[in-house]
Design a binder for these strands. Sequence first.
DNA 1: CTGAAAGCGCTTACAG
DNA 2: CTGAAAGCGCTTACAG
Lengths: 334, 334
Amino acid sequence: MARAAGVSPTTVSHALNGKGTVRKETVERVQRVATEIGYRPSPIAQGLQRSRLGLLALVIRPFHSLDTFLPEGVDYFLRIAGAAGVTAMEHGYSLMMVDDPTRPGVPFSARAADAYIVTEPFENDPVLTMLSEQHIPFVTVGADPARRDEFITLDEGADQQAQLMITHLAEAGAQRIALVTGTDRNDWNLGSQRTLERWCAARGHEPLILSLPEVEGERAGEAIVDHFFAGERAEHPDAVFCLTGRHAAGVLQAATRRGIRVPEDLLLAAGSGSLQNRTSRPTVTTLNLRPEETAQRAVEIAVRLAEGERVEGPLSVPRATLDIRESTSRPPRG
Amino acid sequence: MARAAGVSPTTVSHALNGKGTVRKETVERVQRVATEIGYRPSPIAQGLQRSRLGLLALVIRPFHSLDTFLPEGVDYFLRIAGAAGVTAMEHGYSLMMVDDPTRPGVPFSARAADAYIVTEPFENDPVLTMLSEQHIPFVTVGADPARRDEFITLDEGADQQAQLMITHLAEAGAQRIALVTGTDRNDWNLGSQRTLERWCAARGHEPLILSLPEVEGERAGEAIVDHFFAGERAEHPDAVFCLTGRHAAGVLQAATRRGIRVPEDLLLAAGSGSLQNRTSRPTVTTLNLRPEETAQRAVEIAVRLAEGERVEGPLSVPRATLDIRESTSRPPRG
DNA sequence: CTGAAAGCGCTTACAG
DNA sequence: CTGAAAGCGCTTACAG
C-alpha cells in the first residue's frame, strides 16, 4: 500500500487514521489509492498492538448438556445470545458463541476473545478454572455453586425467583407444590431446589422434587406425571413447577392425555418459559427472567473487563417478574 | 515467559508447539512454568503471522430489516446460525454474527473474519460490494438478485421451492392461490413471486400477490385477510401461501376470527416455517428448507475460501421438502 | 509535513 | 539441542 501511494507506511497510517499531520493532498491520494486497490489495514495487526481484538465470547454452558447450539423451544438462552450480540455491537465489540473452550482442539480463535461471558456455569466449572488460570477476564451469569464469591458474577438470585413463583402458586390455592428441575448442577437448579425444600420444611411436609435431564425436553412429560401421580391420591401434587419451559410443555401434554385438567385439577408453571408456553392450551404461567437486560448487563461488564477496568460490588440480574397465564389462573379444586 | 523459564522465545515456541528439537527436560520445564504463570501464546500474534484468525462471520441480512438479532418465531435463520456455529467449530473456526459491516463505527473485529457468509443478500447489496472491493472472501446463501453470477453463491432455487408448494396446493384442490411475500428485495421473495406469476399466467388469471414487511410478523394477518377477502366472493383465493411462518400464523388467526375455516374454506401454507406452525390449530403446512444442511455447506465453502482454496461450479442449498400438515390436508370446499 | 526506527508477541528459517 | 535474526502488518513516539 505504502509503495502504491508512493509514501511511507507511517504516512499511510496517519492519513487513514487522521492522526499526526499530513498534507491534505497526500491524505486524499492515500485514500484514493486505498479504495482503488481495496486496501484495508489488517485488523489482526491492529489488534496486536492494542493487544485487543474487540471480541467477546459467550459461553452458554447449558448448551453443552443440551448438546446443541440451537435447542428448539429454549428461548431464554437464545434471547441472551441475541441481546448480547446487539449490545456488544453497540459497544464496539463483536460477539462469538463458543462451546467449551477447555476442550482440546478448540478453534484457536475461541481463545482470542478479550473477555468471556459464561452463563449458568456448573459446579466447579472447568471453564471458569481455565479462564481464571490463564488470567482471561470473564463474568458469569449465575454463580458457580461451589465457588460463589470467587469470581465476578451476575447473581441471578435463584432463590428469590423460585420463591416468587412458589408464592404465586400458593396464593392460587396450591397446597402441595412439586418441583421439576434439570440435572445440570448450576445455581438455578440447586437454588430453586433449596428454596422449595425450605418452603416445604416450614409447612412440615416432604418436598416433592424430581430432577430430569434438560435435554429430554417435552419427552419428559410422561415420566414426570407418572412419578408424581403414581401413588395415592392424597399424595398427588396440586401444582407442578418446572424450571424449564419444555418440561412444563411436556407435563401439560401428559396431564391432558390422562384427563388431569389444567388449571382445574393441577396448577402448572414454568421457570424459564418459551414460545410454546405462550401459545399452548391453556397458556402456561412463567417467570419473566428478562434475558435481554441480563445480557446487556453482562456485556457491559465484559467490556469493562476487556478494557482493563476493575469491576466490583455485588452484581445481579434484573429481578424476575411473573407472567401469569391460564395455567394458574383459576383456583384448583373448585 | 521466556525469561521465567530461563530460555529463549524460540525455545518456548518450540517446546509448546512440539516443533524443532528440544531436550525433553527443557520441554517439561517450559510447560511447567507456562501452567504455573498461566501463560498462553497470544492468538492475535499467532494470527498475525498466519494472517488468519480462524474466525468466520455470519451476516443474516433479513435481521437487518427485522431490526433484531433475535426475532421471535423466526426459526430458519436461528437454525442457520446454530448449525453454522457448530460446523465452524468442527472445522477449527469460530463464528461470530455481525450485522451490517458497511456501517461506520462497526466493531473493527467485525472486519477481522477470515471469510464471510451472507444469507439472503438484498438486490445490489452494499455488503457484498464492500466485501468484494476489499477482497474479503465470502459466500452468499441465496443470490443477489441483481448480480446473479458475480459472486460465489449457494443458490437456493427459490423458484423450485415455490413451485413445490404451489403444486402441492393445487393437488390439494386450490384453484386460486394467493401469495404473500416480504418486502426485502432478495432472491427468495422475488423468485417466489416470479414463480407464482408464471403459474397464474399459464392458467390465464391474474396473480394474487401481496408484499408486506417481514417485520410485521403475525400482526400482518388482519391486513392480509382484509386484502384478499375484501372483494366479491368469486375473487377470493382458496389458498394462501405466505413465505414467512409468522405471516402464515397471522393469517390463521385472522381467518379463524372471521369464521373462515382452515383447511375447509381455505388452504394455508408457509414457506419458511417455525415452531408456531407446528403447534397451532390446525397445524400449518410448511416447506422444510433444511437450514442445518444449508449452514453446513455454507461454512464448508467459507472455510475453503478462508484457507485460500478456489471454489467453483454451481453450488446449491439442499432441495426443500414438504412438511404437509393439517392446514392443507383436507380438500377445500368439500 | 514526512519517514526511519522500535515495538506489539509470536514463529520460522538459519547459524552455532 | 539452543538462540539471534528476521518478519507477520500495523502504530506510535521521535527526528529531521
